[in-house]
């Protein structure tokens, strides 16, 4: 993820999730698609929204809001899918809106503030200062692996015992 492109420019695919302006390296983004009908997976961890049919391949759709402890969306708009593939793992992040692909100078990335809550800090790798707003660079590998996330897995257990 953090390895630099040869020509010192990193391209980020950007999108909005709630109040956050996020970006991931374009090289891990397989494609961006419209809302797809999802099949929910009962008993799965929170954050797993369902399964979508991506031209014959079954892809898990994840809600980054739950991973990052954001309140649920109030918008009526259907979310978009950012399909991320890292090696053999493939998953889709449900985002509110897609932004542009932006070129950034990786040397100008800054680590996220240490005061960031740990729940979202895990996923935010660094911050890029755009002219008008801050772009948060998402750790795509962590974002598509809900199983590694201790906080969500604990919540999953809590939910189960309440049933």
């Amino acid at each position: 993820m953090t390895t630099l492109a040869n020509d010192q420019v990193q391209q980020l695919c950007t999108f909005y999730v709630g109040p956050l302006f996020l970006g991931v390296d374009v090289r891990v983004v397989q494609e961006v698609i419209r809302y797809q009908e999802m099949t929910p997976v009962p008993l799965s961890r929170p954050g797993v929204e369902g399964l979508i049919n991506l031209r014959g391949q079954i892809v898990t759709a994840l809600d980054p809001r739950i991973q990052m402890n954001l309140p649920p969306s109030e918008s009526d708009e259907l979310p978009m899918n950012v399909v991320i593939r890292i090696e053999d793992s493939i998953a889709s992040l449900l985002v509110d809106e897609i932004g542009d692909v932006v070129d950034i100078d990786p040397t100008r990335l800054e680590p996220p503030p240490s005061t960031l809550p740990a729940s979202s800090g895990r996923f935010i790798e660094s911050v890029f200062k755009m002219e008008d707003q801050l772009l948060l660079l998402l750790n795509a590998g962590r974002a598509i692996r809900t199983g590694d996330n201790n906080s969500t897995s604990m919540r999953a257990n809590d939910d189960q015992s309440d049933d």
Partner: peptide, 23 residues
């Protein structure tokens, strides 16, 4: 997906005639 494999109640998934996924 690996993350869902731990759920012992499912053997896999399939795509139905209407293009939707079924467990």
């Amino acid at each position: 997906d690996k993350q869902l494999k731990e759920l012992e109640v499912y053997a896999g998934a399939t795509i139905m005639g209407d293009g939707c996924v079924a467990l």
